[in-house]
Amino acid sequence: MKAIEARALTRRFGAFTAVADVDLVVETGEIVGVLGANGAGKTTLMRMILGLLHPSAGRVRLFGLPPSRETRRRIGYVPQGLGLYRDLSAAENLSFSAAAFGVAAALPPPGTGTGALGHLPLGQQRAVAFAAALQHHPDLLVLDEPTSGVAPLARARLWDRIREQAGAGAAVLVTTHYMDEARQADRLVLMAAGRVVGRGQEADIVGAARAVVVRTPDWSGAFAACEAAGLAATLAGTEVRLPGADLEAVRRALGASGVPAELSSAPATLEEAMVLAAGR
């Protein structure tokens, strides 16, 4: 069953088109990640899916129905800012959101105590936000950078819980800026300038995008030579990488500077592919 089905979804703000002709389907039991730079249209897309914003054209169906208060009952949403009251305890936050959905409150996650939520470490605050979003047993989870700022083991534990929900039949839509998080999804959708520009697994998103890799004993010399030639370079340990650059242009820039270097072409990383898709 399709938890989300968006067809030719479009949203304009005056003359500006924030989301253009987007098709997106998320089946039950599936985790789909939406990637894209700021301004790519992720937030506008999410707001239309949540029913907070009307589309200018196209349509959204949630469980086969137009977005409404009834479909909202079946959604668990964790915004990036967590959407909790920092002055209330974990238990009070859970009671509040349980009351809003008319269900019994869940027990707070272990170790979250009775003090104000705002004093807890971010990882525990995120665990509370997640518990709050799950109390009404949603069929669709919408998560905005769910594990940002959390240590790797705590992040792995949170993802175990997200997977459990998908395993139990929930559909999950995640937006993220971070590649560690993107790799947890079953399927990725890359947006740029309001449109979907890539779909599938990491390799599908990267597609034909490549980077020139410079191995050199003098990374700073190589970096400076590339930058001086107007080639956007970045650092990877002690190697220099130039996403989307022309190998011969890099060779000329380094040759002119006399920096010893070994050049090769490698597939772009997921992050580099995102930057290239954004047109930079």
Binding site: N38, T234, R280
Partner: peptide, 11 residues
């Protein structure tokens, strides 16, 4: 920070 600005920051 989004990936495009992040790339600029790392440069």
């Amino acid at each position: 920070v989004d990936p495009v600005s992040r790339a600029d920051l790392w440069r």
